[in-house]
Design a protein around this nucleic acid. Structure first.
Lengths: 224, 224, 224, 224
DNA sequence: GATGAATGAGCATTCATTCAT
DNA sequence: CATGAATGAATGCTCATTCAT
């Protein structure tokens, strides 16, 4: 009843999101350039013209998609980095695990991939992504590293920017793997395993020396 | 003399390479989809039809480009990894510095970027890349890690595959940065600095504990 | 009170005229082909669909516009030509001055201009215009010339039809100028001056010789 | 032989003109807006794409058409107005007869008609026409009137600009008639008769009095 | 071999018209 | 009566590919 009460109106409200979802599906499947407007429309269950009632052009959908999907994500990350009461290491591990969830969702990883693939044709989009996603992510990580250094959790660290990039490197590689080779590849990669190994290696590299003996002790397992 | 003796023949021999070079220029500049056959032909200084005497289609150029450019690269890497007489660490650093040279050359980084961007439209190409570039690179790194462990340079390491990925992560991220955001970005990133920091962090993480006390000592700088 | 008593009814009565006015505005601004139904509707303050309650198609508005606007005009001209008590010359001058008013009003000249521009696409409209406007105007002028000849105001004149066309020529040219080049042109043309010069030249050409000597002698051809 | 020697080359040379001719045919038949690119191409006997090898857009054909057709015409008129050895009256009559030929050729009159009809959508074209056709024509006529006044052929005339417009009025009206109502009308109009009557009336109005007494007396107003 | 004119399928976008609410 | 969301046919333009010279 409620659902069908005013279908016309209800649809009207839902349309943009439906179209965006359909567009994402298409982009994921065949890439931006190879996706025809009609594909998107048909997948959303509307006629071609209907599309243009909601988005003025193919590029516009792309932009909206990036905007709607990425910004909430990064905001969430920023939030979780801001909570007090736990150390920098814990926050970094949390971030990595949240990124792990993104990496595991094909529809979510697809967006950064699209931006990368189409950046040449959409410089504005590239700039937007750089400013709103990368720069914010980098700022977030840099702040965490500094926090860790200041609290003594991490040893003195130069080049926090570079550190942030090294931290993200495996994440980016995995994103690419998931979007590019996973569809073509039977042997799956364990994202969690990779990320937790990354966390272990990376964090022990930058952590302050605790105790007397070998810092690597715990990781080496049975080292005498 | 010999070189210019039979210009017609010479040209005929050189044509495919000239066309590939022209194609790469175009792809770097405007991406695969946005490059028209005529662009490539004109840049190579031939007529549109001439192109088809050497390559049957646009896709074929792409494939040839990847084949011709990537395979020698990876072969070189394999060679340098094979030479005896130096430790695994030294070899890993050498590889990183060779990759650094690739990263610094826009025309070279462009190719993996193209593969990534167009993988969706060229599954065969993705498979080829996965098999001939990634798998071989991974095998190479895995072998090096194993070598290091066996010689006692590195501590016992599980999951060599994952390690290889972690090792490549920052390289991939940098490649993407160079091809995607560098053209749009004024603030340049120091590739060498990033890679050497990566080498330092990563290698000390996996190296066997030398000496008695804190393994991180050297890196911490002022450790007593 | 009466006027506002039943606004709904009132609006319903006024709608067609409002829509026609809006349509005319649009046609004047951007031409018939470039005017979208939505433009007209929005300018009239109604929704697109409402338009179709009053006019079945875009063409229909056009036809109604011509019908509603032109017929009263020509009727007025016919009336003023019919009044007795003044000579043919006076009537012709009156007509010219009435036409001058039409020429000075952009919204009025626009209609004939539209008919001309779109005649190819609306043969029926062209026929209607030819029959109801041109033919009646021509009949009116022919009658006036004949009247002048009969009363001795004008000299004997052959080809009254041609004369009517010559009389209207400058009017038509001015209409075109106003609708086509005036919007694009800074140097304005004095319509009144042109029309009065036209009246002077034209009328003295056809008037009977007054005074003693044959003023028009040369023109009469065979006068010794 | 010569004709078919190098058909490919020959066609290449002839194509633009063929396309222009085809376009004119289409425009004459259905107007600019209603003419589809494919109509033009098909009528020229080529494929749609071929059209774009020669003209970058629909508008471009229009412009080329106006340029190629009108400019030579007006140049011819200017030439014939420049020849010495005959009076201003003779030259005006010559001009009128040349215009008569234009008016009699449907394909020729169609062009000014198109300009008029589409001026709203192509302000540049309107400006071009105004500058290159109208202004030059007007200058030409004005010069002729001045010449006649100076040689004593014509009586002193004020407002030469207005005179030029009055002279052209019937020509313009006829042009419109031919393009707009003639296709819809069975009763044809004798162009020659109209133009020669126009010449007679108009010229005798402005000619100097040749007889004894002041023929123009009445018109000059204050002549004693 | 080399050329470049010709092709025509393909696609983004527009807009008059309909009809469920 | 009024609305405006939905439609889909229509059209300008692009570009990979072919082939006569």
């Amino acid at each position: 009843m409620t659902e069908e009460a005013r279908p016309r109106t209800r649809r009207k409200q839902a349309r943009p999101a439906e179209l965006l979802a359909a567009a994402l599906d298409c982009f994921v499947e065949k890439g931006f350039a190879a996706t025809r407007m009609e594909d998107i429309a048909r997948r959303a269950g509307v006629a071609k013209g209907t599309f243009y009632l909601y988005f003025p052009s193919k590029e516009a959908v792309f932009e909206a998609l990036v905007r709607e999907t990425l910004l909430p994500r990064i905001a969430t990350l920023e939030l979780s980095a801001g909570v007090a009461g736990c150390g920098a290491e814990a926050k970094l591990r949390t971030i990595l695990s949240m990124l792990g969830q993104v990496l595991a969702d094909p529809r979510l990883v697809a967006i950064p991939k699209l931006v990368l693939a189409e950046a040449g044709n959409f410089p504005d989009m590239a700039r937007f992504y750089r400013r709103e996603v990368i720069a914010r992510g980098q700022a977030l990580l840099t702040a965490l590293f500094r926090e860790g250094v200041e609290t003594g959790e991490f040893r003195p660290l130069p080049d926090l920017d570079i550190l942030a990039r090294l931290f993200m490197g495996p994440v980016v590689l995995t994103a690419l793997w998931q979007t590019t080779f996973a569809p073509v590849e039977d042997v799956p990669m364990s994202i969690d395993r990779l990320l937790s190994t990354h966390a272990d290696l990376f964090l022990t590299s930058i952590k302050a020396l605790t105790g007397t003996a070998g810092a690597m002790g715990p990781r080496t397992g049975g080292a005498p």
